[in-house]
């Protein structure tokens, strides 16, 4: 009995070595046929990661503005509505919000007599947009508040109404304070889109998980996954810095 044990230990150790305790880059070596298939499989999630992020960002940019405007009102109750939205949405962790939207929201719709199925794609988009909109709203608020009050007053004295004042006077000036942090926020969305994998969205992270299950090479596959996000985020960062330089240059003009 004892002998069997002594014999088993090195066998178990060796077994471990041969599977995942050593390097095995071959799984994602594009020079081998199988490795290339795997790499293509991993990269194929890129499209959806980008698509989810872009759509969520666009929605967040619109919703954020709508949420920010009441914060700038003279009326207290409007400012309170804004505060409640921002504090509430900001407080909810992304994953529970994702579960709530994906599994819960269709039931809410159904109870109201509407049949609105939510697929993983839109579940992820809605959640990311919702979660991000609280931050976007704060960015708008800070940007708009940085514009001197005299600008609004001057606009009022030449007869512009509220929306015209925003559209032609305030937002064009605030945009250079708003755009760079907004673009920065896009990085947050891209990274958080990884959570979409848990509701079955076939984006970057989900692809990596699926490949790990079949290949059992987590180190190599997740390394590539990390690299994919890194490249994506670095490209966006470069874009943000370019935007900041451009906005800064405009301001000095």
């Amino acid at each position: 009995m004892k002998k069997i044990f002594v014999f088993l230990i090195p066998v178990l150790l060796l077994a471990g070595c041969s599977s995942s305790s050593t390097w095995g880059w071959y799984v994602i070596d594009p020079r081998t046929e199988n490795g290339w298939i795997n790499v293509k499989f991993l990269l194929s999630g890129m499209g959806d990661t980008i698509l989810i992020s872009v759509i969520a960002a666009v929605i967040s940019i619109v919703v954020g503005l709508v949420v920010a405007l009441p914060a700038l009102s003279e009326r207290r109750w409007l400012r309170i509505v804004n505060r409640i939205y921002v504090e509430f949405v900001r407080a909810i962790p992304l994953l529970p919000m994702l579960f709530w939207v994906f599994y819960g929201l269709p039931i809410v719709f159904k109870s109201m007599g509407m049949n609105v199925p939510i697929d993983p794609f839109w579940g992820a988009v809605i959640t990311l947009a919702l979660s991000d909109s609280a931050f976007t709203a704060e960015i708008y608020r800070a940007g708009i508040q940085s514009i001197a009050k005299g600008q609004t007053e001057a606009a009022q004295t030449i007869g512009l109404n509220y929306l015209q004042t925003m559209r032609y006077v305030i937002l064009p000036q605030a945009i250079r304070r708003i755009l760079p942090p907004l673009a920065n926020q896009f990085i947050y969305i891209v990274k958080m889109s990884a959570f979409a994998s848990v509701i079955g969205m076939q984006e970057l992270t989900r692809r990596a998980n699926e490949l790990v299950v079949t290949e059992y090479r987590p180190l190599e596959i997740y390394s590539l996954l990390v690299l994919e996000y890194l490249v994506l985020v670095l490209i966006i960062s470069a874009g943000v810095r370019w935007l900041e330089r451009k906005m800064g240059a405009d301001e000095r003009e």
């Binding site: 001057a154 606009a155 004295t157 064009p172």
Partner: peptide, 19 residues
């Protein structure tokens, strides 16, 4: 709105639209 359309205002700090 009616009164603002009759009344112009010039401010100490000009308040021109810089953009």
């Amino acid at each position: 709105a009616a009164i603002r359309s009759e009344v112009g205002m010039v401010f100490q700090q000009f308040n021109l639209f810089p953009h």
